[in-house]
Design a protein around this nucleic acid. Structure first.
Length: 853
RNA sequence: GGGCGCUUAGCUCAGCUGGCUAGAGCAUCUCGUUUACACCGAGAGGGUCGGGGGUUCGAAUCCCUCAGCGCCCACCA
C-alpha cells in the first residue's frame, strides 16, 4: 500500500504546493468561454507575519478560487504585499529609537531607503506563510503597493481629482499625533474614555468649565447659547478677562452648539485646538491663535508656559489660576472621551495644518447609488446598510501624512507664493524650476488608503505580470469588517471614479478571529495564536476547515482548536477511505463507469448527487460553514459509515472509484492538500485534482433503489438500537417473508453486527418497531421482559406524536392554507406513526402474555 | 443621541425566502478492538430557541415591546 496508515500533513504539504506551483496551476486559464472569476487578495503587510485573520481570509478566498477554477472559469487570485505606510513606519521608528536615533536626523530619501531595506529583509515571510495556508494565488501577478505601476496609477488619479477640483489644499484642523508627528483622517482616530480634571474658571463675568486650561492663550471668544437668558446681555460685546498673564479682551458670541445645561452654559472658544471651536470661529469670524506646536509643547504665545508639554502646562496653569484666585473648583473624576493615536494611544491634538483633502460628497454619491441599486451585494447584507449610513455622513478626507514611508505627494509649492501649487511627478527633486519660478515639493506622503483604495483596478489594469483588465470588476472582495470604511468604501468610491465601474460585484466580510475565550487577540495580552504553529501541529487543511466551521459572515468569533482537531480527523477519515479503496481496487484502477448495481450503489450515487448540488448552491451564496458541514456528513456519515461498509458485502469497483474521485473533487476547495496528496498517490486520469472539473449533477440511479437502501438502513439501525438497549451481546435476526431483508440478509447481518439473519416460519422474540418491515430479534423471555418498560415509553411518545399530527390535520384552515406538499407529508407521517403504534401495541400484548405466565 | 448586530444543548456556534421530531463540533454516559480509520466504530442523554405580546393554518425564523450584551458613529466645553 502506498498510503500510510495515518495522514501526516507535514509530510506532504510542501511537496504538494511545490507541485502546483511548478505546474503553473494557479495561472488563469486562457480560455474564458465559461467566464472569468477573480479575487484580489487584501495585501498583507510586507514586513509582517500572518495572523489568524489572514488564515480565515485565505481559507475563504482560496475555497472560492479553487471552486471556481474547477467550475472551468478563467480564475485568477491576485496576491499583493502592502508597504502599510503608517503601520510599518511605527515599527521602523521604534527600532530607530532603540538604536538611539531620531527621524529628524535624516532626510526623507535616507529614511525611505532605510525603511525599504528594513522591509526587504522581512519580505517573503508572509508569502511563504500564504503558501503554507494553501493560497492558490498566481505569484507571477504579485503587486507590491510601492511598485512603479501603483505609484503611477495613484498619481494619475490624484491628477484627475486635481483637474476635476475634487482635491484641495486647505488649512484645517486635523487629527495629529504629537508622538508620531503626523496627521490622520477622521476615521483613523480611536476614542477612549479617560478621566480628566474638569476645571471651573472665573472668566470675566462668567464662570466656565474646561478640561483644557492650557489652551486658554488661544481663546478668541466666549460662546453661550442664543436662547440662554442668563447671558444674553453680553452677547456681541467685547469683555475684559483677567488671565494668568494679565488682562485681555474677548468677544462673546451666541452659538447653538453650546448646551446651556452643561456646566455653566458658557464655553471658551479655542479655534486652533478644538474641532467644535473651529466651527464656531468660522461662523462668527473669530481669529485663530495656535498655542500648541507640532511637538506637543506650548508656543511662545503661552508666555512663561512656553515649551511645556500639554500636561505640564495644564498643571502649571491651573496652579497659576488658583494663585490668582481664578480657579473656582476642580472636578477630579470627570470622564470624557478623547481621541487617541490608534498605535501609541497618545492623545490626538487637533492641529491647524495645511493638508490635501479630497472632497468626498460628490464622490460618495455614485457609491451610495451603486450600493442602493444593488450593484454591489454585501455578505452579510447588514454591512451594506452600515456603509450607506457612513457614506451619507462622509467627511472630507485628509490624505496628507507627515511620514516618509509612502508614496510622495506629487505637488510643488511656489517658494514665493504660498497659494501657488502645481501638480508635478518629479518627486525625487526637492525643488523644480518652471518659467523661472522655483517650486518646492510637498514633503508629505499619501495616506496608504489613497493608493490601496485603487487596488482592484491597479492590480488588474496595471499588473506588471500582464494585463488583467478582463478580470475587472473582480468577482468578490473578501476582507475584514473592521476595514469597511477605510478600505472597502474607498475602493468603491475610487473604482467608480477612476474605472467607471464598481470594483467588485460582491463584498464578503469576515469578523475578527478571537482567542478561545472570546477576547481580541493582541500582542499586549499575549494571547496571539500563530497560524504557522497550528499548521505545523494539525495541518493546513485542518486549520482551513476548523476556521470556517460554524462561522457566519461578519461576526467576530472565537478560534476553536477543537474545530481544527475535528478538521484534522476529517482529513484522516478521507485518507482512510482512500486507503480502503486503494486496498480494494488498487492504486491504478482506471474504470470509472458509475453503473449502480446494489441498492447501496444507487443510494450512494444519490447522496453524492444531493450533496454536490447542495454544496454548489451554498458556495454560490458564501455559506461556507454549511457547505463544509454538508461535505462532512456526506463523507463521514454517508460514505464512510454506510457505503464503504456496504461495499464490503457487495463490491462495485468502478463505482467505488467514481465515489472517491467525486469526493476528492468536491473536497478539494476545503482541503486542498490531502485531496491532492491522495490524487497523486492513486493514478487518476486527470493530472491534478486542482485542475479537475467540478462534478456535474449525476442522476443515473433509481430513486426506488436508493429508497430501498434507506429502508435497509432503518432495519439495521433499529436492530442496533434494540440490541444495544438489551445489552445482551450479539443477536440473531429473524424474518418471515420479507424480500428486501431476504435479498440483503448478509448486508444486514454485517452492518448490524448480528450472529445471523434467518428466515423462519414462526417468528419469536422481540419484534422491531419498524413500519415497513417485519423482523424479530431472537431473544429469550428474560431479556424480553427487561425491555418491557422501554417499549411502553416508546409507545407513549408515538401516541403523542400521532395526537399532534391529528390535531394538525383536523384543522380545516391548515388543510386550506398550507401547501399540498406539506399536508401530504403530514398525512404520511400520521400513517407511519399509526402503523408504528399498532406494532408496538401488539408487541406489548405479547410481552404481557409472557409476564402473566 | 444616531446606526448595526447579538441572546438557540454544559461550551463555541450554524439554522437561506416562515413548513420533517430545532442541528454541528467539542464535552458527558453506555457498549465495542469486526485489518480503511482509536485522529475509530455502535448507541444514548441533553434545548419551554432571553421574557412578553402580535401576525399566520403554522414562528427559532416576520412585526411590536421589555431585559441583557456587543460593535460602529456623533457629542461631551
Amino acid at each position: 500500500m502506498k498510503l500510510a496508515k495515518l495522514y501526516e500533513p507535514q509530510q506532504y504539504e510542501p511537496t504538494i504546493y511545490a507541485l502546483w506551483e511548478t505546474a503553473a496551476a494557479f495561472a488563469p486559464n486562457p480560455n474564458k468561454d465559461k467566464g472569468v472569476y477573480s479575487i484580489v487578495m487584501p495585501p498583507p503587510n510586507a514586513n509582517g507575519n500572518l495572523h489568524m485573520g489572514h488564515a480565515l481570509m485565505t481559507a475563504v478566498e482560496d475555497i472560492l478560487i479553487r471552486y471556481h477554477r474547477q467550475k472551468g472559469q478563467s480564475t485568477v487570485f491576485i496576491p499583493g504585499a502592502d508597504h502599510a505606510g503608517f503601520e510599518t513606519w511605527v515599527v521602523f521608528e521604534k527600532q530607530l529609537e532603540k538604536e538611539g536615533k531620531n527621524r529628524f536626523d535624516f532626510s526623507r530619501e535616507e529614511l525611505y531607503s532605510m525603511v525599504w531595506e528594513f522591509v526587504a529583509a522581512q519580505r517573503g515571510n508572509m508569502e511563504i506563510q500564504l503558501r503554507e495556508l494553501g493560497a492558490s494565488a498566481d505569484w507571477s501577478k504579485l503587486v507590491f503597493t510601492l511598485d512603479k505601476n501603483v505609484i503611477e496609477t495613484a498619481y494619475k488619479t490624484f491628477k484627475k481629482l486635481w483637474d476635476d477640483g475634487l482635491v484641495y489644499r486647505g488649512k484645517r484642523l486635523v487629527n495629529y499625533c504629537t508622538k508620531h508627528h503626523t496627521g490622520f483622517s477622521d476615521i483613523e482616530v480611536e476614542y477612549e474614555d479617560r478621566t480628566t480634571p474638569l476645571y471651573y474658571l472665573k472668566y470675566g463675568p462668567f464662570i466656565l468649565a474646561t478640561t483644557r486650561p492650557e489652551t486658554k492663550f488661544g481663546d478668541t471668544g466666549v460662546a453661550v447659547h442664543p436662547d440662554d437668558k442668563r447671558y444674553s446681555p453680553y452677547v456681541g460685546k467685547e469683555i475684559e478677562i483677567m488671565g494668568v498673564n494679565g488682562p485681555f479682551t474677548i468677544k462673546v458670541v451666541a452659538d447653538k452648539h453650546v448646551d446651556p445645561k452643561f456646566g455653566t452654559g458658557v464655553v471658551k472658544v479655542t479655534p486652533a485646538h478644538d474641532f467644535n471651536d473651529w466651527d464656531i470661529a468660522q461662523r462668527h469670524n473669530l481669529p485663530v491663535i495656535q498655542v500648541i506646536g507640532l511637538d506637543g509643547r506650548l508656543t511662545e504665545r503661552a508666555g512663561r508656559f512656553a515649551g511645556m508639554t500639554v500636561l505640564e502646562a495644564r498643571e502649571a496653569i491651573a496652579k497659576a489660576l488658583e494663585e490668582k484666585d481664578l480657579l473656582v473648583k476642580v472636578e477630579r473624576d470627570y470622564k470624557n472621551r478623547v481621541g487617541v493615536c490608534y498605535k501609541c494611544k497618545t492623545v490626538i491634538e487637533p492641529m491647524l495644518m495645511d493638508q490635501w483633502f479630497i472632497n468626498m460628497k460628490p464622490l460618495a454619491q455614485p457609491a451610495l447609488e451603486a450600493i442602493k441599486q444593488g450593484d454591489i451585494t454585501f455578505y452579510p447584507s447588514s454591512k451594506g446598510k452600515v456603509l450607506i449610513n457612513y457614506l451619507k455622513g462622509v467627511r472630507d478626507w485628509n490624505i496628507s501624512r507627515q511620514i516618509p514611508w509612502g508614496i510622495p505627494i506629487p505637488a510643488f509649492q511656489n517658494v514665493n507664493n504660498d497659494e501657488d501649487w502645481i501638480f508635478d511627478t518629479r518627486v525625487e527633486e526637492e525643488t523644480i524650476q518652471i518659467d523661472g519660478k522655483t517650486y518646492r515639493r510637498d514633503p508629505d506622503t499619501f495616506d496608504t488608503w489613497f493608493s490601496s483604495g485603487q487596488w482592484p483596478f491597479i492590480v488588474t489594469q496595471a499588473n506588471p505580470g500582464g494585463d488583467l483588465s478582463d478580470y475587472y470588476p473582480t468577482s468578490v472582495m473578501e476582507t475584514g469588517h473592521d476595514i469597511l470604511y477605510s478600505w472597502v468604501s474607498r475602493m468603491i468610491i475610487l473604482g467608480l471614479y477612476s474605472a467607471n465601474k464598481a470594483p467588485f460585484k460582491d463584498v464578503y466580510l469576515h469578523g475578527l478571529v478571537l482567542d478561545s475565550h472570546g477576547q481580541k487577540m493582541s500582542k499586549s495580552k499575549g494571547n496571539v495564536l500563530n497560524p504557522q504553529e497550528i499548521v505545523q501541529k494539525f495541518g493546513s487543511d485542518a486549520l482551513r476547515m476548523g476556521i470556517i466551521a460554524n462561522r457566519g459572515a461578519g461576526n467576530n468569533q472565537a478560534f476553536s482548536q477543537a474545530a481544527v482537531v475535528s478538521g484534522r480527523n476529517f482529513a484522516n477519515k478521507l485518507w482512510n477511505i482512500a486507503r480502503y479503496i486503494e486496498d480494494t481496487i488498487g492504486d491504478d484502477y482506471k474504470e470509472r463507469a458509475p453503473t449502480p448495481e446494489s441498492l447501496a450503489d444507487h443510494w450512494a450515487l444519490r447522496q453524492l448527487d444531493r450533496a454536490n448540488t447542495r454544496i454548489t448552491k451554498l458556495l454560490d451564496t458564501y455559506r461556507f460553514n454549511e457547505a463544509y458541514e454538508t461535505l462532512y456528513h456526506l463523507i463521514w456519515n454517508d460514505i464512510a459509515d454506510w457505503y464503504i461498509e456496504a461495499s464490503k458485502v457487495s463490491l462495485n469497483k468502478p463505482l467505488l472509484a467514481y465515489t472517491l474521485e467525486t469526493l476528492l473533487k468536491i473536497t478539494h476547495p476545503f482541503a486542498p492538500f490531502v485531496t491532492e496528496t491522495i490524487w497523486q498517490t492513486l493514478k487518476w486520469e486527470e493530472d491534478m485534482v486542482i485542475n479537475s472539473s467540478w462534478p456535474e449533477p449525476y442522476q443515473e440511479y433509481t430513486v426506488r433503489s436508493a429508497k430501498a437502501f434507506t429502508e435497509l438502513r432503518e432495519v439495521i439501525t433499529e436492530a442496533r438500537f434494540v440490541a444495544n438497549e438489551l445489552g445482551a451481546g450479539k443477536q440473531r435476526l429473524l424474518f418471515t417473508d420479507d424480500k428486501l431483508i431476504s435479498d440483503n440478509h448478509e448486508l444486514v447481518r454485517q452492518l448490524a453486527n448480528l450472529h445471523a439473519v434467518e428466515k423462519v416460519d414462526q417468528p419469536r422474540g422481540l419484534r422491531l418497531a419498524l413500519v415497513k418491515h417485519e423482523a424479530w430479534l431472537d431473544v429469550d423471555e428474560h431479556t424480553l421482559r427487561k425491555h418491557h418498560a422501554k417499549l411502553e415509553k416508546r409507545l407513549e411518545t408515538t401516541r403523542e406524536q400521532i395526537k399532534r399530527f391529528e390535531l394538525r390535520l383536523n384543522n380545516k384552515a391548515y388543510i386550506a392554507h398550507a401547501p399540498e406538499k406539506v399536508v401530504a407529508q403530514t398525512r404520511e407521517q400520521l400513517t407511519e406513526h399509526q402503523a408504528l403504534r399498532e406494532r408496538l401495541a401488539k408487541e406489548l400484548q405479547v410481552l404481557r402474555g409472557f409476564s402473566q405466565k
